[in-house]
Every structure is written in structure tokens, then in C-alpha cells.
Amino acid sequence: MQFTRKHFDPASKGEPLAGDRVSCRFADARGRLSLYVYDPRLTLAINVALAAKRPLLLAGEPGCGKTSLARNVAKVLGWWYYQQTVSSRTQASDLLWEYDALRRLNDAYVRNRNVLPDHCYVEPGPLWWALAPDTAALRGWARMPLKHRLGDPGEAGEHNHALILLDEIDKAEPDVPNDLLEILDTRSFSVKNVPIRATREKTLVVLTTNGERELPGAFLRRCVTYRFPEADAAWFEEVATRWLPEGNPQHHHDVAERLIAARDRARAAGQRMPGTAEYLDALHAFADLGLTVDSAEWREVEHCVFDKAMALDSAPGGR
């Protein structure tokens, strides 16, 4: 697949692989590793979202790499990075700001502690920081005393652009995605009747869905979407090669084959299929405990790592 990587080019900071794919590996100041292999379809989807200035919606089974992709894209772009996991209780306003009523109540009842002006108890959310960090630092008020100004909680980038991940958007009530559309379309919102406008030139919103709930049609129409293909044994082996370069390739192959068999069992039983996290856990146990795939010990490891859902559903003392 040939196209111009005008906005996002992982090859600029990564290692070329076969099939026009690129591997990008970063370690942040905390020692956290960010590693991703981009194929041409995924790179194109990211470029389309950036060109169209639309949210990028990532769909796929849990563990397929949706969440880890967002941080890696921010690293490649050199942008600031923010993230928030959405729950069934999340409202669109929660992504922008919250009011710390408990802190205000404590200030009111503790002797020798003054109650601050009302706006000092506003706590900016990740979406506010991603869109307008200057006003977020001031909680929306230009005359905010210096001692009450906030530091940016995001992961710093090389440029003053931002990527924000809103993880598991499908868990929210249907009105939340639609409310987000208005905020993203107008690049503005209000905080306790104070209008706030976005000041960053570029902000890429990345959302993920596990398909737990159908998303509103109006929301989908305004997103660029990418669905992760189902992984095969060769894909998992490549993951192991990237994450565990000192590992034994035969072990990677053996465990990947057993993982695929476990995924087939889970699919047939209507259970969640084990993914990348379980595969890497199994590889660590495989190497550290000196197992082989035909040993009794491995069968127990497989049961508690790959067959988690079925193990929990089993009767006590049974399989």
C-alpha cells in the first residue's frame, strides 16, 4: 500500500520491517516501555484522522493493543499525551472538569482555614488540558492566585500539540459520545458559566471500544474508524520477539500455538478470548519456571492464565 505519510510517519522514529510495517519502541522517564508495530492500514487510518481533524475510533477485542497504541502515536508525533478511562458513570462534563465540593466543605469546617473563592475548587479534566492547557492551569479564571495555579499533568511532548485517549467509550451512556461531538466540533465548552475556547492548534482524540454497547450513529459518522484484525499465532510470536528479544523463539512459537487453541476454546464457549497480556504472562512463567508445553505444570499454567473465564465458571474442585 503506497500513500503519502504527510502527518504521521512512524518510519521517522522506528525500525522498518517486512511488509511495509514499522516497529516503534520508546521508554519514558519512568522506565515504562511503549512498543508498537504499525502496518500500512493502521498508519493510513491515523493519517486520515489527522487530515480530517476527526476523532480516531479504535475497535477490537480486549488486549489487542488499542490502549497502548495511543501513547505510542503520541511518542512518534512528539505530542503531549493524556488519557482517561470511561465508565458507566462518566458524563461528558467529567472529562472536562469536576468541582471538589468535599475540599470546599473541609475548608469551611477546619478552624484557621479560609474558604477560597468558588472557582478555586474546580479541577480540570484531561480533555480540558488537551484542548486548552493555559486556562486549565488557571482553572478558567484569569486572576487565579499563583499559589492556586496547577501544573500540567500530561506526559510532555516536543510540540505544543496533544493526543488524548478516551478509553472504553462504549461503556458510557449513549448521550456521552454525542455530547463530546459538540465540544470537539466547536472546540469550546463552559465551566461554571465561564466560556472556554481551545488554544492548542492540534488535538487528536483517540477513542477505543470493545463493542460492549452500540455507539450512536451521529457519533460514528464523525469518527475515522479502524478495527484491529484478529491475531494469529505468527502475530503473537512477533509480539514476543519485540517485547522479549532475549527469549527463546521456540518457546514463543509453542506458547503461541497453545494460546490460539485456548482462544478457540473460549470462542466456542462464548467467553472472552485471552490476548496479548495473557500471552506475555504465560511466556514469563514458561521461561522462569523452566516449563515445556507437554508438562503437567504447563497445563496448570495454561488453565489459570489462558482459561481464566472458564476456570472461574467451573464447579469447585472440577475442571
Rank of each mutant, 00 (worst) to 15 (best):
V205W: 03
V206K: 05
L207Y: 07
T208H: 03
N210Q: 12
N210G: 07
E212S: 13
E212K: 14
L215T: 05
L215S: 03
L215P: 07
G217V: 06
A218N: 13
R221I: 00
R222H: 11
R222K: 14
V224R: 05
V224W: 07
T225L: 05
Y226A: 00
F228D: 04
E230K: 13
E230A: 08
A231T: 05
D232E: 14
A233R: 04
A234N: 14
A234R: 14
A234S: 15
W235N: 06
E237V: 09
E237M: 15
E238C: 02
E238H: 13
V239K: 07
V239C: 13
A240S: 12
A240E: 04
A240C: 12
T241I: 04
R242F: 11
W243D: 08
P245W: 07
P245T: 03
E246W: 13
G247E: 08
N248F: 01
N248P: 08
Q250M: 10
D254T: 05
A256C: 11
A256E: 04
A256W: 06
E257M: 11
E257D: 10
L259S: 04
I260F: 10
I260T: 06
A262G: 07
A262I: 02
R263F: 01
R265K: 12
R265D: 00
R267A: 12
R267M: 03
A268V: 02
G270V: 00
Q271P: 00
Q271M: 08
R272C: 00
R272G: 00
R272H: 03
